[in-house]
Design a binder for these strands. Structure first.
Length: 647
DNA sequence: ATTAGGG
DNA sequence: CCCTAAT
């Protein structure tokens, strides 16, 4: 289908703004052409808007090379949508509301950038609001001229020399919802270097301006997501399989998104053919899949889960905004059950409880790493889902949605939100020791159990982050300081079963997506297994010197080979340390102790401890040797006795 | 569930 | 850290 657009905005001819390349997209089927149009149009609108904003920015802040612009717009797009191949589709965009505010360069310091949310402050135009404005859907309005909803959620420009214009926009047509986000790179010192179209984000991938190194922009990139509720499988494939087919390297996205952390942490590229070869053989068994992880080179299963999860959502439905609100409402009746079904997808999940402490002297890089660690730790320890209705946490998992005022007619769907929360275990670092005889080298150590427990947080103060109780943060509204959102990669996890909603945190059990059958709706009551946990390699948590000390001490007493006892004695409250971990750590300790200090890596372990490791190792090896000999002796004598008695 | 050892 | 085999 050929679509022609013409956009006007306050006299600004948007058609003069170069358009983003669309070759990335593949129009696969006629059936989805309507959706394609939606996407293209929305992207164009974005591009146009960004251009317009840039223009305004240039004039309004010409004196300053830095500008922070918060632009809040609501647009009303008139669009003529024609199904015919030749007929044009015209769009008119009028800005209803604009608010330009610039800040001085000094206001845009890295501290502010990091500490506050001065990059982007989203003003979400809720769907309810938009509907209140009388905006009508477009899908299905063949040969008709109808109003189409377009809204810009936020626009921000910031940085020193390189500017980034971020535009978040939603575009709604009936039950279809297109969320768009684009980052535009400009040189504020030389506005002529506008490179908007090349940096437009498509399909969730990242396209950098020509000749731009991704790394150099890292710090400035903040927002890049594109959610197109185009229910074409092909498009989803493109969306998520960028790593092998579309060649859109994720690692170039330098912002804090779970997808990045997960992928850069353990994810490596896997040959597509290899992957499918593996998955074919796995026979639907999750465990098998993850067993093959090595072969898969750390292929991140989240991606696949997301893909297939999305695939299940063949109906256009509700979209949960990044603030947890629903941006599009669509309630349909289940054809099978004749029951009311709530359908929606989750665009992103908020992690409100990430609390990060870093010293003032910390570098930006270390801060990034810290946040990265915090996020990966959150994932590694397991997450649960919190359900919010009108900002309030819904605690009773047994209530039905209607009971929770979440019925389709209740209209409360606009206020449905989800949060990612730390798993039920170890929200805070646990005390290392639970018994009084452990750890004796630290000066502050007390031999008293209760004091030890009380002192343990201090022990762990080196751990730079705490995953605080989400409820606390949410209810007390403390997230003021760090409003910047962490958008998890699986931002498109969708839950479209009422049952799923009403169940507990397992509501987000992800489909393994190994087989086509996996696309079928999975009743949640099945297995409480959290595939996210299975799939995810545990976060690496290097042992601290304190922990090593504790371990050495325990092994000195208990010996090697009694890891369960070591665990119970010294690491009972450190739920992230299994006895296998302790055993492994001892193994590496022995190895570390036997190599030269130059060969060692990571946080240096005091030589004194290593000496003790070696000593204990020798000692207990000897013991084992003796025992073995005893055993052999015993069996030998038994054999002798037996043979003697049988004589 | 634990332990031991290879990867 | 993960995985497996053997207890």
């Amino acid at each position: 289908m050929v679509v022609k657009r013409k956009l006007h905005c306050n006299g600004f001819d948007f058609s003069t703004i170069p358009k983003a390349p669309r070759s990335i997209r593949k129009v696969s089927s006629e059936k989805d052409d309507a959706d394609v149009d939606i996407e293209i149009t929305a992207i164009d609108l974005l591009a146009s808007l960004a251009g317009k904003l840039l223009e305004e920015t240039e004039s309004s802040s010409s004196s300053s090379t830095n500008a922070f612009v918060r632009h809040h717009l609501v647009g009303n797009v008139k669009q003529e949508h024609v199904e015919d191949d030749v007929k044009p589709c015209k769009s008119e965009l009028s800005l209803l509301q604009g608010d330009l505010a610039s800040k001085t360069p000094s206001e845009i310091t890295s501290e502010k950038y990091l500490g506050n949310d001065c990059i982007l402050e989203q003003t979400l135009v809720s769907d309810c609001k938009r509907r209140a404005l009388g905006l009508k859907p477009l899908v299905g309005c063949e040969n008709k001229k109808e109003d189409c909803d377009f809204h810009v959620e936020s626009v921000g420009i910031m940085s020193e020399e390189m500017g980034v214009v971020s535009v978040d926009a939603g575009f709604e047509q009936g039950e279809a919802s297109v969320g768009l986000s684009a980052d535009t790179f400009i040189s504020l010192k030389d506005p002529s270097h506008l490179q908007f179209p090349e940096s437009l984000h498509l399909d969730g991938g990242v396209k950098m301006p020509p000749g731009t190194d991704g790394g150099s922009l890292k710090g400035y990139r903040n927002h890049s997501k594109l959610v197109c509720r185009d229910d074409d499988d092909e498009n989803y494939c493109k969306y998520y399989r960028f790593s092998d087919r579309c060649n859109r390297p994720l690692t170039r996205v330098g912002h804090l998104r779970m997808k990045k952390s997960v992928i850069t942490k353990y994810g490596r590229a896997i040959p597509r053919s290899k992957f499918f070869e593996d998955t074919r053989r796995t026979d639907g068994c999750l465990k098998s899949l993850y067993r093959k992880r090595k072969l898969c080179h750390g292929y991140n299963p989240w991606k696949r889960e997301t893909v297939h999860r999305k695939r299940r959502l063949s109906d256009k439905g509700l979209v949960v905004n990044s603030d947890g609100g629903l941006s599009s409402e669509s309630v349909t009746n289940s054809p099978q059950k004749g029951e009311s079904v709530v359908k929606f997808s989750i665009k992103s999940l908020r992690i409100p409880e990430l609390f990060i402490e870093v010293p003032e002297t910390a570098t930006v890089g270390s801060l990034k790493r810290t946040v990265m660690e915090a996020v990966t730790a959150l994932l590694g320890d397991g997450i649960r889902i919190g359900v919010l209705v009108q900002g309030k946490k819904v605690r009773d998992d047994n209530n039905t949605l209607s009971q929770t005022a979440l019925s389709c007619r209740g209209g409360n769907l606009c206020n449905l939100g989800f949060t990612l929360e730390p798993g039920p275990t170890e929200n805070l670092p646990a005390p290392l020791c639970s018994e009084n005889h452990v750890i004796s080298t630290t000066p502050t150590d007390s031999t008293n159990l209760s004091e030890r427990s009380a002192a343990s947080p201090a022990l762990d103060s080196r751990i730079p982050f705490h995953l605080q109780d989400a409820d606390h943060v949410i209810n007390s509204g403390i997230c003021v300081e760090n409003k910047q959102e962490l958008v998890p990669y699986q931002s498109d996890i969708s839950v479209d079963e009422e049952q799923q909603l009403s169940s507990d945190s397992r509501a987000l059990v992800l489909v393994s997506a190994l087989e086509p059958e996996a696309l079928a709706i999975v009743p949640l009551n099945e297995k409480p297994k959290r595939s996210t946990e299975i799939s995810q390699r545990r976060t690496r948590r290097p042992f601290s010197v304190t922990e090593v000390e504790s371990l050495v001490h325990a092994v000195e007493e208990l010996g090697t080979g009694r890891w369960r006892d070591v665990k119970l004695r010294s690491f009972e409250n450190a739920s992230h340390r299994t006895y296998v971990d302790l055993k492994d750590k001892w193994k590496t300790l022995v190895h570390t102790a036997s190599i030269t200090p130059q060969q060692r890596r990571g946080e240096p372990v005091p030589q004194e401890l290593l000496d003790r490791v070696l000593a204990a190792h020798r000692c207990w090896s000897q013991q084992h040797q003796l025992k073995q000999n005893e055993k052999l002796q015993g069996t030998a004598t038994m054999v002798v006795v037996e043979s003697g008695s049988s004589m």
